[in-house]
Every structure is written in C-alpha cells, then in structure tokens.
Amino acid sequence: MALLTKTPFSFLRNAVISTSIRTISTTKQLNIKEIREHKDGNKLIVEGVTVPSPRMELLVKSEKVAEEVLSVEKPTCYLCKLDLDVKHTDVLILSQFVRSDGCMLPRRVTGLCRRQQKKVSKMVTMAQKAGLMINLTPSYCKKDPKLRYAYKKFNTYFDEKTIFMKRIPDQRDKFKR
C-alpha cells in the first residue's frame, strides 16, 4: 500500500536543489547559548556557554543573496523566499519551529514575517492535534495519540485553506434560513 502513495517530502528535495536563496550569512558561524550548571565544591556555577547550532551544515545554503536583495524591493523572510508548499503533515519542517515541549517559538526567535509566523504556528497546532508530533509534547503527555481523551483519540486531518479564513464554514450552515 505504501508503494501506491507518493513520497510526501519530495518537494523539499527539489527545493534544496533548485533554490539557492537565503538571507542568513554563512561566512560567520552563528552560535547559540546553552545554560549549564555544575558544582565546584560547595559553589554552584551556572554559566551560559556559547555552543554551535545543531545541524548547522544542513542549513539551506545561499549563493545569489546579493542580486536577490536588489531585485526584491520589499524585504521578505527566508520562508517566503524558499517558496515551499508546507503542509501540516510535513513534521520534519514544522518540528524545527518548535521547542522540545512542542510549543511554537515566538517571532523574535523564528525571524519569520507576520503571515508566515501565523501560518506555521497554525500548522504546528494542526500537526499536534493530528498527533503527528507526539514526541514533542509536555512531559505529562502519555506520548500516544490513541490514549487521548474522547474525540481526540481518532485521526483528524486538516485543510490548509482554512488557516487564513475569517470564519470556517460550518457543516450545519446549510440548514439555516
């Protein structure tokens, strides 16, 4: 049965080969911080250590950033430039915008534009409700979508078109006069 279905993440593979647009500089290694605690005698030392970002070499690289910046008048974020058709089932992408407890990162951390931040955070919610990122949940979670309460234990899928809808049409609307 798996043979009949298309591989879901193929679009990104194409995107990696075809697009080479990226605003983040690759010359300087970006570092992030980690808080470490260790005891030295009866002194507790808490320090912020600068560590290299995980999986740095896999960051989507850019070569034509300069001409891209000139051609585009309005500054856009990296996700707009990559122009990916991200669905709520693409958990490998969505899990990058999420803390280890499954909470969406704020816009000052993700660096997305307003629209993309809204889109990604809604899709993260959809993926969590569908139980696709069950390993990125708070510690009190049972880590199994089938053990959730009442209607939540059944499979649910979502339509990405509803993300920017003002009001999602209801099933019962057709009975209204």
Binding site: K33, R55, Y78, Q96, S100
Partner: peptide, 18 residues
C-alpha cells in the same frame, strides 16, 4: 533521517536552547 533533513530555521545567536 530526522538529523539529516535540511534545516530551514536558524536560531538567533543569543537563543537559549530549551
């Protein structure tokens, strides 16, 4: 496969990993 997947987002330099 998760580790080898291309990375889209990069953390800011002063981000504290959680």
């Amino acid at each position: 496969e998760v580790q080898q997947y291309p990375k889209v987002m990069e953390y800011p330099s002063d981000y504290v990993l959680k």
